[in-house]
């Protein structure tokens, strides 16, 4: 555990996110394999991971293309799935300062796992944890994609390994420490219910964006937030 008087360092972010980055890297390998099957060249799939850097969005786009869908339909699916990053970007904006290009670059690293790892409670984010964790996950995703795209045929069926079940589990492990208050638990329940209800009704991606509306629960009750508590992160490594 980090002594309370020492600020977070970049390497704290890297260390905390390491087990998650390992899972992301494996998923990157899977994506590299599937992207080749969906008609992406090795270079295109690597550039896709380096720019879009969003697993679910990239899988969705590759899925649409391999099912015979149009390029714009595939890109739209990806952008819908990444639309939550507009809200996530807003939430970390107060922590990102410096010249515009630096803010733009740092913002690209803020994917789900990184965002949650660098949450220090009460809607506050630590910029060093963001950078350390973000670079680690980014490296894992791009390296995994490269391996999958170049050596895909040597790798078996990733679904047989249960990799697709790893992600909901990962997000559940990330959610539990966020449920510190009654209100946070209510937002989680409402967000899950909204998403579940909309899956049969709306295109992929929309249920997740709509679930963000659950944070409107934050408008009720006392206006001021409680002081940010020192957020206890569970040890992620065994």
């Amino acid at each position: 555990m980090r002594p309370v008087d020492r600020p977070h360092r970049h390497r704290d972010g890297a260390r905390r996110v390491a087990p998650l980055a390992a899972v992301v890297a494996l998923f990157g390998v899977t994506f590299g394999v599937l992207a080749r099957d969906a008609g992406f060249s090795a270079l295109a799939s690597i550039v896709f991971s380096a720019t879009t850097f969003g697993g679910s969005a990239q899988f969705a786009a590759a899925g649409v293309l391999s099912a015979g869908g149009a390029a714009l339909a595939a890109a739209t699916a990806a952008l819908l799935l990444n639309a939550r990053y507009a809200a996530i970007g807003m939430s970390v904006a107060p922590e990102l300062h410096g010249p515009w290009w630096e803010r733009l670059l740092r913002a690209q690293l803020v994917v789900d796992e990184v965002w949650v790892i660098s949450h220090t409670g009460g809607g506050r984010y630590d910029r060093r944890l963001l950078l350390g964790a973000g670079l680690t996950v980014y490296a894992g995703w791009v390296a995994g994609t490269t391996l999958g795209a170049l050596a895909g045929s040597l790798i078996g069926d990733p679904l047989a390994l249960g990799l697709d079940a790893a992600f909901p589990a990962l997000f559940l492990a990330l959610l539990v420490p966020q449920l510190g208050s009654r209100r946070a638990a209510a937002a989680a329940l409402l967000g899950g219910a909204i998403a579940l209800a909309l899956v049969p009704l709306a295109p992929p991606g929309v249920p997740i964006i709509a679930a963000a509306l659950a944070c409107l629960l934050g408008l009720r009750g006392p206006r001021a937030l409680p002081e940010p508590v020192e957020f206890e992160h569970r040890e992620l490594l065994p």
Binding site: P168, L179, A185, L196, A211, A214, L219
Partner: peptide
């Protein structure tokens, strides 16, 4: 700030249910 504090639990719960039980629109 009050809204942002609840964004993480809401989005994570949505990601969990969609990735565990969603299959396209089913």
């Amino acid at each position: 700030q009050g809204l942002v504090a609840l964004l993480a639990p809401a989005l994570l719960a949505a990601l969990i249910v969609v990735q565990a039980f969603g299959d396209g629109r089913a």
